[in-house]
Write a protein that binds this DNA or RNA. Sequence first.
DNA 1: TGTTAATTAGGAATCATTCCTATTATGATA
DNA 2: TATCATAATAGGAATGATTCCTAATTAACA
Lengths: 145, 145
Amino acid sequence: MIKRKKPRDIEQTLIKRLQDKGYRLTPQRREIIKLLSRDKSHPGAMDILHKVKKIVPGISMSTVYYTLDMMKKEGLIRELEYYDTDNRYEINIKDHINLVCTKCRKITDFTGNVPSFSKAVEKETGFKPASMRFEYYGICRDCEK
Amino acid sequence: MIKRKKPRDIEQTLIKRLQDKGYRLTPQRREIIKLLSRDKSHPGAMDILHKVKKIVPGISMSTVYYTLDMMKKEGLIRELEYYDTDNRYEINIKDHINLVCTKCRKITDFTGNVPSFSKAVEKETGFKPASMRFEYYGICRDCEK
DNA sequence: TGTTAATTAGGAATCATTCCTATTATGATA
DNA sequence: TATCATAATAGGAATGATTCCTAATTAACA
């Protein structure tokens, strides 16, 4: 039985955590959070700008980046960095494998169970893993058709 | 018993594979290949430029990028892409985990055994993995001291 | 040794992201 | 509810690794 939180709850939790940390709640932030808690497509800054603009027309790219950067620093979201595409953002901050479609560029989470190697790595090499990034590149089910 | 090829052999193999594919062997390419087959630090284009310049003083950044790009396309090397640092290059094209030190930026290969999840991913999600990128970020043994 | 197409050098262009600054508006306080 | 301090925003300029462009050079062939 997998327990999956409702978007509305995720949204409220994020807002509360921001306010507890002393950040102000602006319409721009509210909408960015709302979007990220519902949109599982791992949107980029430009996607976010365009989608939020429908609700908050005046929002600027600066604000999108400023907000994402702040939430990233506070550990509320995770940034997936790419050099050949724009960076992507996700609220799933738990360790997991991302499946990157090289055709449509969509990114999905692999929710299956994945054992951790960090202990083995540290034991064998002395390197102490603090975070990870596991990605598979390939063709998603939709593009395969 | 791990079989590890000598740098000299790796170098000769790469040169032969290039020539077999019809590419010309220039002093610039010879030195870039020589460097990559010996330098396991996962150097970036700028590193490669500076190091090769000691042997081939006139070499330009364009040539470094052109050569790396060509070798990448031919599957001779692997490019690790980062948006917050310059990209890195390695001759180890087999699937493996890279250990990225967030302090000194050095990257090392984890040579331990790692099971593949690609079959499980395809079975569970329909996504067909073609390649992967597994990285651990943390502090390397040298920086830990 | 000459030929020719691949390769190179140098510099301009690209573009997502970061940086900068004046203006605006949130949230605390009275 | 109005005032205020300052966090947040908008807009645009700056950044920098990489890509693109073109003329000059050179490796590899006969």
